[in-house]
Amino acid sequence: MYTTSAWRQQTPRDWEHYVNKQVRVTAHGQQQHRGWLHTVDPVTASVVLVQLGESAGGCSVSVVMGHAVEQVEVVGEADEETAMRLSSLFRSEELEARGGE
């Protein structure tokens, strides 16, 4: 578990530790977000969370702005398949959009 009002002051290596972990993020106003942590923007400290669907395709994404992050807790680890899905998430889309070059 990790508690801080200084989430934005962490170093990229601290944030990297959370990549591909299942986390619970508490944002301003006790809003809770749960999902796989895809990345943390090193500029704004915003957290990108992914809720993976059953099928290979569908998923929903929530992004908590860095300035509103109050707490980040790790609740699970990704297996290999989940980690693969997370890494390829926004890449395939982009390739399709550009005609699969």
């Binding site: 170093t11 990229p12 290596r13 944030w15 990297e16 990549v19 895809h38 990345t39 943390v40 923007d41 090193p42 500029v43 915003s46 990108v48 994404v61 992004v63 998430l89 926004f90 890449r91 889309e93 982009e94």
Partner: peptide
């Protein structure tokens, strides 16, 4: 190592914005 972590995470974030 820090720069590598920073660029990997920034790239993921920018791709998310594009999508």
């Amino acid at each position: 190592t820090e720069q590598r972590a920073r660029s990997m995470m920034r790239e993921r974030f920018l791709r998310c914005l594009i999508s």
